[in-house]
Design a protein around this nucleic acid. Structure first.
Length: 713
DNA sequence: CCTGTCCCTTTTTTT
DNA sequence: AAGGGACAGG
């Protein structure tokens, strides 16, 4: 066989990799090597000359998965080249596009913002931004806030957008008692449009709309992406499926990989129907089942299989393993309280490293809810076990980071009301709710955005702006101490001065960029990431951020806090310094802000410290999907936590919890620990819990139980 | 009209 | 814990 990488595959995997044209459905059980199949299929298409790298589009759910796939493809191509770097030389030219649905759509919409009906400087609102808008709308509509909550409204909007139903259409489909939500949806859409902003769901929605309204654009992209692969297909929702159908409609070279047992995102609108109807959508499609598990020991696999068999709504299937012997039993540990549980986990990790030869990176601690991490973290710190926490409050969601970035966002897109309000209020400027409203009203009446209104003197009646004069503060390099705000200038005047200053700085950088883009933007995504590397804009972005930090008075504000021995402010200072650091890696401001909205930067801290000290991984089971570890702890196996209390009222969500547990268990290769605690602190007091039903569903003979009566705190 | 402070609720999972 | 609401002070 001419291609060495094919040798390591079993028959089914090989069939999948060798599949060329036409639709292909791969039903891949946990640990059956689907990532290898996807990546090698891409490699094979390239090596056989069926496709150029840029003809392949891979869609995944997390940035982490996308990164990993790209990395693997790069390695495989390099390996095949015998060390030559024709592919994957780091500039993106030689590698297929692998991205999440959201980042793919965002790139697409940036390129065709005008056709999508947005200005090219549009921003992406994250959950937090959206919530703010929704809360305000509910207030302004004088709705009963006890009944109509922002989270319900958000859910309504999301549900509709995921079903490709816009605000007007939603009036037609709502039930009578949901009428208010449709009104909110409508106001919300208006508000976002006025802000030249899209939320996460809009990214999908507008991409689909773009393709539907512009057949020539769709044509172009389906010609470009001749081969499309979708990972975790069981977790796609209606609109994601629709996007893929549009792109693949012409050539039908669509390969999807999924496992109904690992469907854990129905709360986000994911529907298993997409897998079930795949064969109907693409008659005569090939179906390949991967049922051999290469990951886990027999004990672990049996526990998982038997557990998930408790679900009624599933296609029956059996995962088999060739592993000899059962492996060690699954440890079920019962603690008196959550501190004891963490104590045990930390102690056991130390033992695993000391006696069993594992290292930190081999070990993961998984849990149902992010709130569980705190107690565990505290214990790991005390035991000096290095760890990396994934998910939870992400770096770019932190208040101080969002505060600083809101200056850049507003300066680039002066229609962005959320960033305007945020930036002007995060430091005491003397402008409060009334003043802001006042400015917005003036601007609105004159059909101008805030900055235009400011520049044309419309704000002369605003206190603090009546005698605003040109300032002389300038943007100094990040390394030198930039000017703090001049106390003789009003807070609000200083604020606008900072905004205008960074606006002109940023625009000059972006203009340079667009000049480059015109040269290269011909046909195709091949040029996509290739053009931004060698720019001479250098550390401009870091300088700008540093300038905002200093000149807005944000730093001064935090440092006063620190003098009061405020640990939180100290952390915030560190985080902003880290932000400035991270910004050195970017010279495209839009790209930087885009990734701050939709990319997790989970991986970054580790990569940057450059050391080879490895760390234990902490994350929710949701974020662990697609990963594997030699040793896995799943903490908090209690009724009301896992399965979660909010899933107990209906069979569907209970089954999803069980699948989630299945996903958690199948992350483990060699050793699995399931821990639970009789008492768990929740807020001020303790809650008493029963062991999770999932523990009972695992056969006793696979388990070794430890009951610990010690109380640690 | 803005800002600081005290007290109150809330915390499933994610791009 | 930490963000939001209520209230007092400036």
């Amino acid at each position: 066989m001419p291609f060495a990488y094919l040798k390591s595959l079993n028959e089914e995997q090989l069939n999948a990799v060798l599949h060329e044209d036409g639709p292909l459905l791969i039903l891949a059980g946990a640990g059956s090597g689907k990532t290898r199949v996807i990546t090698l299929r891409a490699v094979h298409l390239i090596k056989t000359g069926k496709a150029k790298p840029y003809n392949i589009l891979g869609v995944t759910f997390t940035n982490k998965a996308a990164r990993e796939m790209k990395e693997r493809i790069k390695k495989a191509l390099e390996y095949e080249e015998g060390g030559h770097m024709e592919y994957g030389s780091g500039n993106g030219f030689g590698l297929p596009e692998f991205s999440t649905f959201h980042s793919f759509c965002l790139k697409l919409l940036r390129r065709h913002a005008d056709l999508a009906g947005y200005e090219r400087s549009f921003v992406v609102f994250d959950e937090d931004d959206s919530s703010k808008v929704i809360t305000k709308i509910i207030k302004s509509l004088n709705l009963n806030e006890k009944i109509i909550t922002p989270s319900k409204a958000k859910y309504f909007i999301e549900r509709n957008k995921n079903s490709f139903i816009n605000a007007e259409e939603s009036f037609g489909t709502v039930k009578a008692w949901e009428k208010d939500y449709a009104v909110i949806y409508s106001e919300y859409s208006k508000k976002l449009k006025e802000s030249n902003a899209m939320d996460f769901n809009d990214l999908l929605f507008n991409a689909v709309k773009l393709f539907q309204n512009n057949p020539q654009i769709l044509e172009r992209y389906s010609n470009l992406y001749k081969y499309i692969m979708v990972d975790e297909f069981q977790d796609t929702n209606y609109i994601q499926d629709k996007l893929i159908k549009l792109l693949a409609g012409k050539h039908k070279n669509i390969c999807v990989v999924g496992d109904d047992d690992q469907s854990i995102y129905s709360f986000r609108g994911a529907t298993i129907d997409n897998i079930l109807s795949f064969e109907k959508t693409y008659p005569g499609c090939s179906v390949i089942k991967l049922e051999r598990n290469y990951r886990s020991t027999k004990n672990i696999l049996d526990a998982a299989s038997i557990l998930v068999r408790g679900n009624k709504l599933r296609k029956d299937k059996t995962l088999t393993t060739d592993k000899k012997g059962g492996g060690s039993r699954i440890t079920v540990y019962q603690a008196n309280n959550d501190y004891s549980e963490s104590y045990y986990i930390a102690k056991e990790i130390r033992r695993l490293i000391r006696e069993d030869g594992y290292s930190n990176k081999d070990i993961a601690i998984l849990y149902r809810a992010n709130s569980q991490s705190r107690v565990i973290e505290d214990r790991l710190v005390k035991e000096s076990i290095r760890y990396n926490i994934y998910g939870g409050l992400k770096f770019y969601q932190r208040k101080e980071i969002k505060d600083i970035l809101s200056f850049l966002r507003f300066a680039l897109n002066p229609k962005d009301a959320v960033s305007f309000e945020r930036s002007i209020q995060c430091v005491p400027t003397g402008a409060g709710e009334k003043t802001i409203k006042n400015m917005q009203d003036i601007a609105f009446k004159n059909g101008a955005d805030i900055l235009t209104a400011l520049k044309t003197g419309l704000f002369s009646s605003i206190r603090g702006l009546n005698n605003m004069q040109a300032q002389t503060i300038s943007i100094a390099p990040a390394s030198s101490p930039a000017a703090a705000p001049d106390s003789s200038v009003s807070g609000i005047a200083n604020y606008f001065d900072v905004i205008l200053k960074i606006k002109s700085e940023m625009e000059s950088v972006i203009l340079d960029k667009q000049g480059e883009m015109v040269k290269t933007a011909d046909e195709g995504a091949a040029t996509e990431s290739g053009l931004s590397r060698d720019s001479n804009s250098g550390d401009k972005l870091a300088d700008i951020i540093n300038f905002v930090y200093k000149a807005s008075g944000y730093e001064a504000m935090l440092r006063t806090g620190v003098s009061k021995a405020n640990e939180l402010d100290r952390n915030r200072i560190e985080n902003i310094e880290e932000l400035i650091n991270a910004s050195h890696d970017f010279d495209d401001i839009t790209e930087f802000l885009d990734q701050s909205a939709i990319n997790d930067t989970k991986e970054e801290p580790d990569a940057r410290d450059g050391s080879d000290i490895t760390k234990v991984s902490l994350m929710t089971i949701h974020s662990a999907k697609g990963l594997e570890f030699p040793v896995v702890f799943i903490a908090g196996l209690e009724e009301h936590l896992f399965p979660h209390i909010r899933s107990l009222d209906n069979e569907l969500s209970l089954e999803e919890e069980r699948r989630l547990c299945y996903v958690g268990i199948t992350r483990a290769k060699e050793k699995l620990y399931l821990t639970w605690s009789k008492r768990r602190r929740s807020g001020k007091d303790y809650k008493y819990n029963m062991p999770s039903r999932f523990l009972r569903e695992i056969p006793e003979e696979l388990i070794e139980e430890i009951i610990d009566n010690y109380e640690y705190y």
